[in-house]
Design a protein around this nucleic acid. Structure first.
Lengths: 199, 199
DNA sequence: ACCTGAACACCGTTCAAGT
DNA sequence: ACCTGAACACCGTTCAAGT
C-alpha cells in the first residue's frame, strides 16, 4: 500500500492545518499530537512529515494562520475608523474580542518560545510586523513628526499593555471578571496612554 | 538496595526543588524532566514521586517559590517608598528587573495553563494574591474612598499592562530593545495610567 | 519504611519497504 | 513518487521487589 495520490501535497498540507486548528480550538494546544492529526485526515504519521519539517514547523504555520486572521480582523477595524484615537481604541477592543473568541489558538501564539539559537523564519516575522505596522501608522497620524523609532516603541508599549490585560484576565485565575469588565480596563489603559503621550 | 535514609523526606523535597530551579534557570523550562532531576540529586525517578504527586505538582511548587521570591522582592521595594505614586512606579520597574534577571523561571509561571476543570490549590492562589494585595493597598492610599473592587481592577489593569510589556519585550522577537528602553515604556505606561485614573 | 529499576503507555521522528 | 507502519529514543508514571 502506498501512492494513493488522492490528494496533492498542497491539499494534504491544507488538511493538516485545518485538522490542527480544529484540535487546538476544541481541546487546546496541548492536545495537538502528530498521530491525532494523521488519524483526523485519514493518513498515517509519516505523511505529516511529507508536508511539514516537523511538529515545530507545523505549529509555526498554525500560529502564522492565526496571525493572518488576527491581522485581517484588525485591518477591517482600521478601515471602519477614520479618526486615529477612536481607531486605536477600537483596535484594542478588537484585540480583546479576538483573543476571547479564539482563546486557544490565540494563547498558542505565546505558549511556545523559540530556542534562542534559531531565528524565526522571515515569513513569520513578516506576519508579526503586519500586526504592528497598522498601529505604528496610526500613532504617526495621531501626532505627525515623531520618529519611526518612537512610534514603534509606542505601538509596542500599547500592544504590550493591552495584551497583558487580555492574557491575565482571560486566564481567569485571579478573581474572574467578565469580558465587559476587561474591556473597561482596556479602555482606561488606552485612553490614558494616548492622553499621556500627546498632551 | 533501598532504605538509604541518608536524607529525610523534607530534605529530598528541598533537593528536588533546588535541582529543578537550577535546570530551569540554566536550560529553560522545557528541559525540566523527572529523570534529569533524579540524576541531579543522586536518586532514581521513583523517589521524586515519594515527595511530589507528579510532574505538574513539582512544577507548581517551583512556580510557587518563584512567586514568593517575587513577592519578597516587591515588598522590599514597597518598604523603601513611602509616597504611593513613586512606590507604584518603583514596583513596576522592579517587576521588569525581576523578570529580566530570572527570565526562565518568571516565564515558567505563565507557560503552563491549568486545565479548566481542576482548580489551582489554595496555597498557590494565596501566593498570587500576595503579589496583588500590596498593589491594591497602594491604590487605596493614592486616592482613598474607592471600593475594594475598583482598586482590585486597577491593580490588575496596571499589572497586566506592565506584565504585557515585559513579556513581549523580553521575548525579543520584535525588534530587540534594550532593558533601558523597556523601562522607559513601563514608566510611560504607569505614569499615564495613574494620571488618568486620578485626575 | 524507604528506595530501586524494570515495565508500561505515549510521544515525536525516521526510514526501509511496499505499490 | 507517494505513502505506510514498524522501529527508535525519550518521556511521565507505576509498582513489585528488594533491604
Amino acid at each position: 500500500m502506498a501512492r494513493r495520490s488522492e490528494h496533492s501535497q498542497e491539499e494534504i498540507k491544507e488538511m493538516v492545518l485545518q485538522a490542527a486548528e480544529t484540535i487546538v480550538n476544541e481541546e487546546g494546544f496541548h492536545s495537538l499530537k502528530v498521530r491525532k492529526v494523521a488519524m483526523e485526515i485519514g493518513y498515517t504519521v509519516g505523511s505529516i512529515y511529507m508536508v511539514f519539517e516537523n511538529m515545530a514547523d507545523l505549529i509555526l504555520h498554525v500560529k502564522g494562520r492565526t496571525l493572518d486572521e488576527l491581522a485581517d480582523y484588525l485591518e477591517a477595524i482600521v478601515a471602519e475608523n477614520a479618526e486615529p484615537e477612536q481607531c486605536i481604541l477600537a483596535l484594542s477592543k478588537g484585540y480583546l474580542t479576538f483573543a476571547n473568541q479564539h482563546y486557544n489558538r490565540w494563547r498558542m501564539i505565546f505558549e511556545v518560545k523559540q530556542p534562542e539559537d534559531e531565528e524565526l523564519p522571515l515569513w513569520y516575522q513578516a506576519k508579526v510586523n503586519r500586526i504592528f505596522a497598522g498601529v505604528e501608522q496610526l500613532f504617526d497620524q495621531l501626532k505627525p513628526g515623531q520618529t519611526n523609532q518612537q512610534n514603534k516603541l509606542k505601538a509596542r508599549a500599547l500592544w504590550g499593555g493591552v495584551h497583558g490585560i487580555c492574557m491575565l484576565s482571560l486566564d481567569g485565575k485571579l478573581g474572574i471578571v467578565g469580558v465587559d469588565d476587561i474591556e473597561e480596563l482596556v479602555v482606561v489603559l488606552v485612553r490614558n496612554f494616548i492622553a499621556g503621550c500627546y498632551r
